[in-house]
Design a protein around this nucleic acid. Structure first.
Lengths: 193, 193, 193, 193
DNA sequence: CATGAATGAGTGTTCATTCAT
DNA sequence: GATGAATGAACACTCATTCAT
């Protein structure tokens, strides 16, 4: 197994553990144990626990961005794209709760992990944000959405999905998350009009 | 100075430090130092660092809830209430960035701090959530908003505001946060229709 | 017991352990154990193991310097001063082998411990070197010694004593170190003529 | 390249790195890297890091001893031999500072590396010490030096040279080390009279 | 011979919490 | 109530050494 594959394997494990317990409550030994790997060997793949957290964010962001990139490339209305994205996103939450949880638990909250150097936290998510930008601007161009500040539009899309994710994670939703799909998509589209 | 006042003073300081550095990067000594108080004495007011974090959440939630409770009691349209809340909330971000930052950095992310016992994280914010519920239901009753699942509506209000807060904290907004007030309020109202 | 006294107590213990085992083979726990003190508490007195090593050097250097300063202040010939110093130095080796051993084992060899910042290793021993300078210059002034480069003179005094210390530490001397007193003093004086 | 040659190559590299960083701050990987060799392969040539350090001492000692042996074999006065040796030694410091530095940094200080078994540190340098012995005794026999305890004489020669080496390593000498040649040789001869 | 991934014991340091004063 | 020295378990990270390939 080559280095890259192993790094990915580590990231996948780390996502599970970090998302369940948070960054600071997870020890490197625990991650190594879960991987049936020695601590020392872990450090052959990542120079530090922090750098693992950073790589994990990039990993998740890329997945989300790829998802949305594919949707953006489809020949469908923007409204349909939103619906498709919400659906895919909720499916993603179901399949990989650890990735989304990780986003919430580690990325949003532990800025100190991501904000050393110039490569600030926001930059890490850039790829995803760019795709949201495209989704929105396309909608504006074809008249489906109304022009407004992109940051507001972004908060709208990411915020509403984030809110639902949080509620889902807190186990307070009364129905399964995918049942909210239509309602959430409609709400987002309304908001963008 | 009586016990309660001192506890509040500690909470206020803790909010500043926790919000800047995160819960795990802040030591009890540091909080005590900032308060010109001994570590030992700190433990006369809070039984643990975690319990301080919990009290701080309650403290902030109460502020937000009171704010919204007052707005809910006004004799104005629901749309005006939303606008008023967004305005107050953005002003609050300006005045007490530490409180909102704290919410994001510690509450959303460090579930382990809040989820021991049955007193789960969500319960801590209940007071605020209840007021959002009232705001929304009143709007539905008087025909300004459309009936939909409350959780979606909540995500809408809290999510969009949360998104803007995040972007503001990341310093990527091009204008001052209060300049987004109208646009955000309108977007929320659209979404709720 | 106040902070300074405790720091000195720690230094004294550290000298013993460091001199026996070397800096890198001594753990902080071990020093703490020897002091019947917890590791954590050790760090209330010294910010790091390295800083302890530095403080220890200053401590020993001061002792040697004070010794020589007193001798320099006496109203006796320079030759008598040399003899007196050799005698005192050898007695010192007997009484506090750990201090001298420490000098050899840690100071001479672990430059990396002492050469961060501008405060380079040499500077730490300055006080002692200054007194050697005085001893030599006084001797030159009163005609007992011949003018030569101070560095050569210093090597002469410190080098010969160092050599004897090394041999003593290696347990290869056939007699007790104090029995070499006269011979060594004479040799040094010869060398300075 | 045969085994012996490679061992020597490793020693030469180790001398450079050890002398610059000390034994404990140098990793086996680093030495291997510098040699463009794998860590695993290093262990085909030396059974341990410590044994490399020991071999390196023997290596340096042999060089110095050979140097002095050659000088001892010359048909010149003892005083001239001393002068010649100082000159060669200072040239050696210039050419191979790492070897001398190594002596100071690793040999004098890290006794634990050399004192396992009966093969104590002192024994390692025996070859060189024996030549110093010959130099001194020859001088005594032909009346140039005065009979005194050999250990004092040895401290005199090795100590003064060692002192100069230390000062040179600390970069406090005002002139180039070879400029001190005459003065040092004279001082040593004086001391031996 | 050569490689370098893997091991895992060991180290310096931190920090929430306690408690004698 | 107030102090801050003391505790000690815990953690990130290192590195000499091994061994399957």
């Amino acid at each position: 197994m080559n280095k890259l594959r192993k790094q990915n394997k580590i990231i996948e494990t780390a996502l599970k553990v970090f998302s369940k317990q948070g960054f600071y409550n997870t020890t490197v030994s625990q991650i190594a144990d879960d991987l049936k790997m020695s601590v020392g060997n872990f450090y052959n793949y990542f120079p530090s626990k922090k750098s693992l957290a950073r790589s994990a964010i990039v990993f998740v962001t890329k997945k989300l961005a790829n998802n949305l990139r594919y949707i953006n490339s489809q020949k469908i209305t923007s409204e349909q794209k939103v619906k498709m994205f919400v659906k895919e996103y909720f499916a993603f939450i179901q399949q990989h709760p650890e990735m989304i949880e990780y986003f919430f638990r580690v990325y949003l909250s532990s800025r100190e992990l991501f904000c050393e150097h110039e490569d600030c936290g926001f930059a890490l998510a850039k790829e995803f944000i760019d795709e949201v930008h495209i989704l929105f601007e396309d909608g504006v161009k074809n008249g489906e959405f109304v022009q407004k500040d992109f940051f507001v539009a972004f908060s709208c899309i990411a915020g509403i999905l984030g809110g639902m994710t949080f509620l889902s994670g807190e186990h307070v939703l009364e129905q399964k998350i995918e049942d909210y799909c239509d309602s959430v998509a409609k709400t987002i589209c309304h908001a963008l009009k």
